[in-house]
C-alpha cells in the first residue's frame, strides 16, 4: 500500500500564501483527518497532492513519486476533490465509464463501484437529476474505480443524509483496515472523530498539529475543543 509525503510545500496566489512550507507524511493503514478553517489551505493541499495545482515550492508524492509521474494514477490514488465534477447531461454510469476508459480500468469495475456506493439503480439517470448526496456518492465511486491504495477525500460527507454519513464512516474505517492510506478533510469534527486514527490541523496554510487522535484529545477534550484550542494558539501567535 502507498504512503503520502509532502515536503516543504508552499503555494502562493500572487501575494496570498495559501499553503506555507507544509511538511507531513502519512503511513499506509492509517486514516487521517485533515481539519482547518475555511481558507486554511486544505483543498489547495489536496489538489497539489493529485497534481491539479502546482506547488510554488516543495514536493508532494505518493509512494515517493509525484502524481503527474505515476504510471497508472487511478490504480494508486483515488481522489474526491469536488462532487460537481460530472457533466449534468451524462448518466452516472457513462460518467464513470469515461473515467475508467481513460485510466484503462475494465468496464465491469464501473458496475461494482456503483453498487458499492448504492447508486446501482440510479446509474442510468443523468447526473443533472442527482441530489448533492448522490453526486457525492458518484464522486466517491470515481475515487474507488481503480481500487487504489491511497484515498484523498475532500469533504466527502457533504450532502449525505444520516444513513449516508454512517455508511461513509464504516466505508472509510474499512478502507483503513485494509491497509490503505486515507486522507480525509472535513468540517464535521464530531463525525470525523469517529472515523480517523490521526488528525492534522492546518491554520493559515501552516501545519499546527499532527498526531494520533487520542493524543490530540488526551485532556478529555472533543476534537472540536482541541481544534479550537490549537487554532486559537496559532491565531494569537
Amino acid at each position: 500500500m502507498d504512503g503520502i509525503a509532502v515536503h516543504g510545500v508552499t503555494k502562493r496566489y500572487g501575494r496570498v500564501v495559501a499553503v506555507d512550507n507544509l511538511t507531513f507524511s502519512l503511513e499506509p493503514g492509517r486514516v487521517t483527518g485533515f481539519v482547518g478553517r475555511n481558507g486554511a489551505g486544505k483543498t489547495t493541499t489536496l489538489r497539489m497532492l493529485v497534481g491539479l495545482t502546482r506547488p510554488t515550492r516543495g514536493i508532494a508524492t505518493i509512494s515517493g513519486i509525484r502524481y503527474r509521474e505515476l504510471r497508472e494514477p487511478l490504480r494508486q490514488v483515488g481522489a474526491l476533490i469536488d462532487p460537481n465534477c460530472f457533466h449534468p447531461g451524462r448518466t452516472g454510469r457513462n460518467s464513470l465509464r469515461a473515467i475508467a476508459r481513460m485510466a484503462q480500468i475494465e468496464d465491469t469495475r464501473v458496475g461494482e463501484v456503483l453498487e458499492l456506493v448504492d447508486l446501482g439503480s440510479a446509474a442510468g439517470r443523468r447526473v443533472g437529476g442527482y441530489s448533492l448526496g448522490m453526486r457525492q456518492r458518484l464522486a466517491l465511486a470515481a475515487a474507488l474505480l481503480g481500487d487504489p491504495g491511497t484515498l484523498i477525500l475532500d469533504e466527502p460527507a457533504n450532502g449525505l443524509d444520516p444513513d449516508g454519513v454512517r455508511w461513509l464512516r464504516s466505508l472509510i474505517r474499512g478502507l483503513g483496515a485494509q491497509g490503505r492510506t486515507v486522507l480525509i478533510s472535513s468540517h464535521v469534527l464530531a463525525e470525523l472523530a469517529q472515523a480517523v486514527d490521526d488528525v492534522m490541523v492546518i491554520e493559515k496554510g501552516r501545519l499546527v498539529a499532527h498526531g494520533p487522535m487520542a493524543e490530540l484529545t488526551n485532556r478529555g477534550e472533543t476534537l472540536e475543543d482541541a481544534f479550537l484550542r490549537l487554532t486559537a494558539i496559532q491565531g494569537a501567535s
Binding site: 497534481g51 487511478l74 460537481n84 465534477c85 457533466h87 473515467i99
Partner: peptide, 9 residues
C-alpha cells in the same frame, strides 16, 4: 462542468 478534475486525475 468541472469534469476536467476527473480527466486530469
Amino acid at each position: 462542468h468541472g469534469t476536467v478534475l476527473t480527466t486530469r486525475t
